[in-house]
Design a protein around this nucleic acid. Structure first.
Lengths: 399, 399
DNA sequence: GTGAATTAATCCGCATAGGGGAAAAATTGT
DNA sequence: ACAATTTTTCCCCTATGCGGATTAATTCAC
């Protein structure tokens, strides 16, 4: 257990204040004091230090002041957008998306690269990622030295704490120390995180879970991922390992265990169409889901069947996850949502069937079809959160 | 987020020191300082306060002193066993077990009552539990006024935070505020907790997880429960709800969803034998599992079949839990373990088959056939932990 | 336009916490 | 008896947060 000393005390309260400023837009010291339950004195001291470090700014213009109120007007404080810049990236098998954001998480530039990295040697992947980060930074009119940190979201099992990619469909090898590799290449602190975790934090900060401190997110992409928000922070498994939902077992079939990935993974849904040459080409180019969508609209029976089966499998899985975590909301994201009604309806039906009666109504299902840059923005949020926690200049005691 | 003030700081460090004394037996201040990474000054101050409150005691006799060492000898400190007494209880459908323990968790008296409470009205259950607690306290040579708190472990979905029993096979009703009810009856603070959580903490304190700060426990009784230890503390779901594993879905069968409880619940295993009059009687009296054990030894085919099916279902479920939490150890407890080899072997086989290759070797399975009083002792540990956290006299600032 | 009223933010002094280093305490060895 | 050694406590310092008084910046009333 971390030992509690005055420094930790201050770090906690500082983060608390900073996070309050981030969440509640321009906000006066008094309101911060009410929300955090810190005394106005303490808030004053902490905000002074944050102002001194340039992390927040007073906003004089356009005071949101109620004109009919007397007394000294409140000074609204807000994040200094230019206090830092980070890069967030979503790396998938057939595409990479990067964003550069400011300290508030506003996107300054986006870059989408529809490149297949799948199974390339590590060096090639690192080259391509490095290039993407550098280009996106240049697009934002910045240089890498202006960037404070980078966070890359990967599918698979990612150990955020150590920066190792334990296993990922993108890498042929296991246990790749990708964080160190990229930190060296970019000479900027780089962290890796599960893509599902990244978009989970993204939803907590910018998306469909801003109002919640607990929730669960399920990502349906090539890999099936899980993110759990618990008490406003990401719940990373025991060893800091991320969860790999695709490995979950749904039951025993004639050929051994049936895993979720074999029912609802991207390749499981699309793979049944191998015969069709044009479709195979689309898959290879990462347009499989769009193509599948078109086929479903055209009443392609085989694909509709696959989508229904996938929806059932995912619906059951969500019911199981809800049984374990009982979150107030479950957010579903990922390319598989593009399969449309056949998939979503069977998912909803299976969920309704499988959810235990006692938990009926506890969780609401929310579908989110955000684009890839939202994932990257989530990764940026992960990077920003670590900046918020870091000590900064700390406006040393004796100056 | 809780605001950090000096009081919180002290509370944290105090708990840390107290817990270190609990875990590492008689221990000197210097060793506490090393383990907690607090300065010797701080440890000295905190231990002084703990001594003052009578929670710990110096041990002069039998100093574990290395005779060949010079200098002032270390004074070993240990928990004051008599600083408090608590009652822990395990309440099951067909039996209740209580223990009274001292501040260290040593059992002072046990009481096992093989009574069927199942579906009795709340008032009757409360009567019986009250009676059990009172008797066990008397057996320990104490009076209820000597008892500082009571913790009762129930099967089902228990909301520890509020003291509500959301649903339990023992109660006909749902959402029973049993903690308040018993607190009033006993005029002693009483908390309720999931039986699975109780034995999870029990294993962390006294049993097969003393060396771990993360682990998962699965309880196989009438109800199938889950306990997750995360960073030395119980992980209680989002809303503080406990998990009910039996509701997990294993797949779709011909008659709708197949839940784990229908494969591996006590009644699922035993229920198939309804024909046999003597067996039915044994079940009614809560001796079902013992009887089943005998039948299995006698090569009863139907029961062996049921045990094998149950083992498979549990094995798959454990694999899924491991996929989600990746704990270093999974402890299995509960009456169903008595089914013996057919059950355990099929469980192990199914687990080995279902665990994803990437997680092979991450978790070890441990079977624990502790008796009921160990469950009750776990409940006592839950009660004790809350005492450890509570402020006590705090040796007020100005004396 | 000037002063009263009002509200926000800061300053001052206090209490408590933890840490470092010196001093005291309790031993063993010579 | 005194030196050496190790543990524990004592004294002083700094940092933190808080309550109450003070100062700052407005609006309203006349």
């Amino acid at each position: 257990m971390k030992t509690a000393d005055p420094e930790l005390m201050r770090a906690i309260n500082r983060l608390n204040v900073l996070d309050t400023v981030r969440r509640h837009g321009p906000i006066s010291r008094i309101e911060i004091s009410e929300r955090t339950e810190l005394s106005t004195t303490t808030v004053s001291a902490i905000t002074a230090s944050l102002l001194d470090d340039g992390l927040i700014l007073p906003r004089h213009e356009g005071d949101i002041r109620n004109e009919a109120v007397r007394g000294r007007p409140r000074v609204a404080l807000e994040l200094n957008p230019d206090a830092a810049r980070v890069v967030g990236g979503k790396i998938a098998a057939n595409r990479m998306v990067f964003v550069v954001t400011n300290f508030r998480g506003d996107v300054l530039s986006k870059l989408a690269l529809p490149i297949r990295l799948d199974r390339q040697p590590i060096g090639v992947i690192a080259d391509l990622v490095e290039d993407g980060v550098r280009r996106c930074v240049v697009d934002a009119g910045l240089s890498l030295e202006d960037v404070d940190s980078v966070c890359l979201g990967f599918p698979g099992v990612i150990e955020h704490r150590t920066g190792y990619i334990r296993s990922s469909p993108i890498f042929r090898d296991t246990n790749v120390d990708f964080a160190s590799e990229m930190s060296t290449r970019l000479s900027t602190p780089t962290i890796v995180e599960s893509d599902a975790h990244a978009i989970t934090l993204g939803h907590h900060w910018f998306g469909k879970a801003r109002d919640l401190e607990d929730m669960v997110l399920i990502s349906l992409e090539q890999t099936l991922g899980l993110g759990v928000l618990h008490g406003n922070s990401l719940f990373r498994g025991a060893g800091g390992l991320s969860h790999n939902l695709g490995d979950l077992v749904l039951g025993m079939g004639p050929n051994g265990v049936v895993r979720l990935s074999s029912q609802a993974g991207e390749s499981a849904i699309l793979g049944e169409q191998q015969a069709d040459g044009r479709f195979a080409e689309a898959i290879r180019l990462g347009r499989g889901m769009n193509h599948a969508q078109a086929l479903i609209k055209a009443d392609d029976d085989r694909l509709i069947g696959a989508a229904i089966r996938a929806g059932e499998a995912v619906g059951l899985t969500i019911a199981n996850i809800v049984t374990l975590f009982a979150p107030p909301r479950v957010i579903l994201v990922g390319s598989s949502l593009a399969l449309g009604e056949p998939f979503l309806n069977s998912l909803r039906d299976a969920y309704a069937l499988a959810i235990p009666p006692s938990l009926r109504g506890v969780s609401e299902l929310v579908f989110d079809d955000s684009t890839d840059d939202f994932w990257a923005q989530g990764a940026a949020a992960v990077a920003l959160y670590e900046l918020y926690e870091s000590p900064w200049n700390t406006t040393g005691p004796a100056l």
